[in-house]
Design a protein around this nucleic acid. Sequence first.
DNA 1: TGGAGCTCA
DNA 2: ACGCATGAGCTCCAG
Length: 634
Amino acid sequence: MVETPVQLALFETQDSYGEAHSGAPTIPRVAQSSDDFAELLREIDAADRIAFDTETTGVDMTRCDMVGMSLTTRPGIGWYLPVETASGDWHLPADSPDALTLRGALNRSRALLAAHNAKFDLGVLQRHGMPITHPVYDTMIAQFAIDPFARGALGLKPLAKLHLGWDMQEIETLIGHSHVSRQRSMRDVPLALVAPYAAADADATWRLVDALQPQVAALGLERLLNEVEFPLIPVLVDMELDGVAIDRPYLAALSVEMTARLRVVEADIYRLAGRVFNVGSPQQLANMLYRVLGLQVDVSADAAYLPSTRAHRLEELRDKHPMVPLVLEQRELAKLLGTYVDALPALINPATGRVHTHFNQAVVITGRLSSSNPNLQNVPITSEMGRRVRRAFIGAPGAPDSPRACVLSSDYSQVELRVLAHLADDAVLRAAFQRGEDIHASTAASIYHVPIAQVTSEQRGFAKRINFGIAYGMSSFSLARSTGMTDAQAEKFMADYFRRFAGVRRWLESTKRKMSCDGYVATLYGRRRPFNDMRGRDGSEVRRNERLAVNHPVQGSAAEIVKIAMIKLQKALRAGGYKARLTVQVHDELVLDVPREEVADVRELVRREMEEAVQLSVPLKAGIGVGDNWDSVE
DNA sequence: TGGAGCTCA
DNA sequence: ACGCATGAGCTCCAG
């Protein structure tokens, strides 16, 4: 039978696990009777700290099934609660009375709850009738705050190795490798093997809290974790589980239209080329443009390499040959089709009819969220064609006979510049924000010494460039590059800027000094970015680190403000009994599904929670739009 | 799998 | 003289 090789593999697993067991001394206890369960409940009531972990049939919390759950209330022992069993033994089905009892016990407990990558476990538990309302200590997020460069090694097993010296059993020893033959499901692994594996995971998590806590304290990360990152987890769980509604018929029609246009454009390209080639291959395209057609670009060319075919390079050639604009159009169509129009429908969860992105808290060094599968933080907005894609993101369907929810988008106005004004304590910049002025016009007025009403649009444009660039540590050369000023003009412009905004200049200097003296810089809530000793390094490397150093507190503190706004907003929405739901965060923008009858209320609630998220020395301002889709929110 | 190229804030 | 703005994710190609 098919079973035989599986069994063999599992026996081998047990052997290797036996060797490794000395490193992970967890005694598993399987809850197999009502008496066991009652004993566990008593332990939960008496516990100071409870670590838990879920075993599931997959890694996607929006669709996997729960196989079991492990719980540890003291080091060395891990309970395992099967969710389903073949026999009549005690188990814990979703929504069963026992599940409700456990949920009540966990939420009633005064113990610290801990989990590794808690968002996953909380999402799974929520989908199985056990929502956890307590804040949870997440050992993965704590580790990321301690060492943001550990990004690739944030799994529970590497952490247990690092902090506890444990060589833990890898999950592949139970379910096989995803790339080798077909992976088995955790559901098919015998209880006798799942239980010790799961128990060790909960035990490791329990002990990791002790290992991490001294470092968290030493690095001053308590407020960041307890006031920002941990409370954000349940907000992200709700956002991910709710998902975003997609207009599938609209996308289908858009696909037909865009694909037809793509075929026409490609046919025209082949006709002009005199042959068929792969326009999507930068190499073949460069060969066609620069060798066959002989187009010239004005760059100091290394003879060994053909020039790039990047869009801004092709824009310079737009009028030189009719193929060039066609290539640009082909690129845009192929990108939109491949990334959204044809790809999004496949990501719609059939059970919910929505797409469920992942918001990751442990990827971006500055502390921003990242979004993946799909990335909803880079949905096109600039081009007309891109905005047609954006129109596919719509409100959730309402109850029968009631209309779809609206899409509400609220974005912070100039949040990073306001953060800079606060951090740098720059009197001029602060005053401009306090007066509620158009900040770019105001900056221009300051630099050119003219009344704000007399600022020309060109002057405002220069000021806007410098306002954006400052937070990135921009040089006068890049200012010249991006504005078309000469180097000398740009240099003078920046000198004028820093004379006027002396607080900003002092802050930039002190931040760079802090980087080299202390070896780190930090955000409002204390998230650090470490730097290596740069003594004896190349000047350009030092300057790059200086740019990273000044960007970190600005970008990272802004990210914290948005996260706090999300936490407060979610709380206010729930307290008010609203059906409105947060769906997407795009760094300085929050997107919500709002039933039509709630729009007036929720609009003001969102504004208040965002503008009052934190108290800075400058006001925060949010701009809000409402529409039928993500494009029409203006 | 790494780079080229594109999208966003 | 050099090198030239921060932070991400996804798709495609080529090897």
